[in-house]
Nucleic acid binder design. Sequence first.
DNA 1: CAGAAATTCTAGCACCGCTAGACATTCGAG
DNA 2: CTCGAATGTCTAGCGGTGCTAGAATTTCTG
Lengths: 213, 213
Amino acid sequence: MAAQVRKERERADREKLIVATARELAEQQGWDAVTTRRLAERIQYSQPVLYSHFRGKREIIGAVALEGATEMAAALRAAANAATNATTNTTRDATTNTAGDSATGGPRGRVLALARAYLDFAERYPAVYDAMFQLDGGLTFAAEETPEPLRDGFTALLETLEDVAGPDVRPGLFTEIFWASLHGLATLSRAGRLPPQDAEDRIELLVDRLSAF
Amino acid sequence: MAAQVRKERERADREKLIVATARELAEQQGWDAVTTRRLAERIQYSQPVLYSHFRGKREIIGAVALEGATEMAAALRAAANAATNATTNTTRDATTNTAGDSATGGPRGRVLALARAYLDFAERYPAVYDAMFQLDGGLTFAAEETPEPLRDGFTALLETLEDVAGPDVRPGLFTEIFWASLHGLATLSRAGRLPPQDAEDRIELLVDRLSAF
DNA sequence: CAGAAATTCTAGCACCGCTAGACATTCGAG
DNA sequence: CTCGAATGTCTAGCGGTGCTAGAATTTCTG
């Protein structure tokens, strides 16, 4: 019965296609443009096929969110890692790096890199970010049954931030406020509610104030 | 022609009724339940009447947002003011107020009270808060043509925060990151993405880290 | 009081998420 | 190979959305 496993694989492929197409459509034209009709048309199937994979549009958003969470966790770890292994930047005058710019492998550089990576992700993939934190994807947070990718995203933040939480401060609690602050910056910036030109200043001020290097 | 001014007043009244009804409906059943049909029915007029006052649903949301901004600014100022005039709390043991709890008239107490008032407003009037910062009300921020109530809300924050921005930090910039952090806490908390029991700890940690008392 | 002007309503458009039931396809037993 | 059952997919449609053209009504004005 190899035919059986082939069908299962094709079905899994189609599911991935749905999620990828939804994400693509959302990135191109926003989530409002992701309608079940358009989505069905793009994958060359009729609407009910979508409902054989997902219980509704919410679940499709949720699937995009989980995919995004995995990517974000990887991006955050990569940034923190790159900052750890970075020494003085050769293209820049080392004497200007007095207070420990991001081009140092110290804690400040790591945290700055982490914050930038987070905000960069939110700005680069706004639709995915919305699916994760802005829209209702039917996902559970801060609980037992929180899906692994979401938990892992939080952990990726925590891995870098636990070093700067400071004494007598639970790393988890510190990560929560750090995350919330980044989330606030990300959403307010993208909605045009904060002056764009000061973005970099805000990141540095926030990181320097929150962190106990 | 006193009839003319009477009609204008009646028209203004009806506009206020629309906004108040939209807000009420949103608070009771969420913004999804605020449809033009339901709204029209509640105010005892047909749908097109709504469109003689507002260009669309967006503008109605925007009107609720402006109303909310005015209220929020007042609430923030009231909280900051009350904290300024507060001395040691008589109902509480003064010796436990070692590190300067909110029941002192000092900067920390003022900022804590401000932060609590902000988050309290967001929690108490989630629909209004959404109209202001989460939904698209067609409003312009961080620009010349930003409506007065919104600017004033920011100013209300700034009035208290400029004292703790610290030297060499633009008060406006500091207010931006403080606001963003509060906004992040407010939205993530309400979406169930942060453990509710640590809410108070988060506020104190955030305030203590951000502020330069 | 009649006609003009302003106001309000009815009815409908194109679209939404979602689904019942018709239709087509694939499978397995004889 | 055949034929009934099971599986898969589609067509068509439901009740809802924001919004608007044009008819109907009310109010104002000469």
